[in-house]
Design a binder for these strands. Structure first.
Lengths: 212, 212
DNA sequence: TAGTAAATCAAGCGATGGCTTGACTTTATG
DNA sequence: CATAAAGTCAAGCCATCGCTTGATTTACTA
């Protein structure tokens, strides 16, 4: 009989192995980057055999690509959602809080969420070659930031606004990777926000030294 | 006879090999980090034999440590000199320009100077274990920055000032490593300064959203 | 119960890594 | 010239890397 879908234990176990491999890969990518990840360390961590990577993903690189792409998508979606939820009268401080929100929440949460951020940050330094698939999301994220930024900084032309947005994003990425990030991870969400948001907002606003 | 010091060709050639190895190591460290550096690529680039590294430095790690320490010292010295040359009435904009000066000059100069900056930035993410020898210089650099920063930001307590200084340093490091840095490297020194200094100064100043 | 496909496993292959070795060349010294 | 020190070199050792293979286990199907 067809019996439609009684849970197939084989496929379920396979999915569990796949997820375990991807999770282990994400953690190693977060703490050591693409060059510091080895097949055997991933499989040890996931409790799987070395051949499982080839079987489920085809190659180590394909597994890392999958983990990276998932992490990037997760981050960009969270940031776009935060920016889109801002009203048209949002202050620069609120824009900065939304922009840095996903990163700050990851610091407070730790664990997998923080691993996602660290992986995303590493990709910002060493972009894998097949990441053009996400170019559209990157563009939308930047457009969202510019849209909510412009009303607050009418005197700054778009080129500089783009530069400052990239600087702010880079600063957040740096915090995720550098030792200072592990210090932040021990603070409360409120403490993080109180210290970090003014810095991001200040970077957006800029200080030309000419305007009193 | 004693003959004091007639140039010993053997020692001179050895020094040339040592310098070539260290330079090649620095370039590879700058573009691939500590994990992406191989003995054979260094020796190929330097035109030396693989055994030369063991002979002159003891190990690959010792060579990398020497190259990293030299780069760190070069950067910290340049930044401290820039900060020390500021008068007591320096504006926040001038402080930011001095703080970011060595990095901006390296972007404009490219080549070895930029490799030094990239290596320093990488160390900020993956600190080697034997770098406690330079702790004193790091401390002095931070104290210098705080000294020239305080008069401009009397309302900000020291803890936040330290945080903002680390953020600003992190931002500069990020620019050195991320793709945006290669874009900066194609701009003139004036263009770089005009875009970057306001961002750094803004990060120092902060924006709490409470002060109009 | 026999058959089958999904998944797992131990073992090993070829390539590459850091490092060592012993012979060789070069240069200064008596 | 003979000796010794400083440096360079080709070759190889051993570990680890990504990946493959053929056998085996597991869970569903007819």
């Amino acid at each position: 009989m067809i019996q439609a879908k009684k849970t197939d234990m084989r496929r379920e176990a396979g999915q569990r192995t796949r997820d375990g491999l991807q999770t282990a890969a994400l953690e190693l990518l977060a703490q050591r980057g693409q060059e510091g990840v080895t097949l055997r360390e991933i499989t040890d961590r996931a409790g799987a055999n070395v051949a499982a990577v080839s079987y489920h993903f085809g190659s180590l690189k394909a597994l890392c690509d999958a983990a990276i792409e998932h992490a990037l998508e997760q981050y960009l979606d969270a940031q776009m959602e935060a920016l889109d939820s801002l009203g048209p009268t949002a202050t620069l401080h609120e824009v900065a809080a939304a922009f840095a929100g996903p990163m700050m929440r990851a610091f407070a949460a730790g664990g997998q969420d923080l691993a996602v951020m660290r992986t995303v940050a590493r990709v910002g330094i060493e972009p894998p070659q097949g990441w053009e698939r996400l170019t559209g999301k990157f563009d939308k994220s930047r457009r969202d930031a510019l849209r909510v930024l412009k009303p607050n900084l009418p005197g700054v032309d778009e080129e500089e606004l783009i530069f400052r947005t990239r600087c702010a994003a880079g600063l957040l990425n740096w915090l995720a990777l550098a030792p200072i990030g592990t210090e932040l991870a021990t603070m409360s969400a409120e403490q993080i926000e109180r210290q970090l948001v003014p810095v991001v907002a200040g970077a957006f606003r800029g200080d030309t030294g000419t305007g009193g």
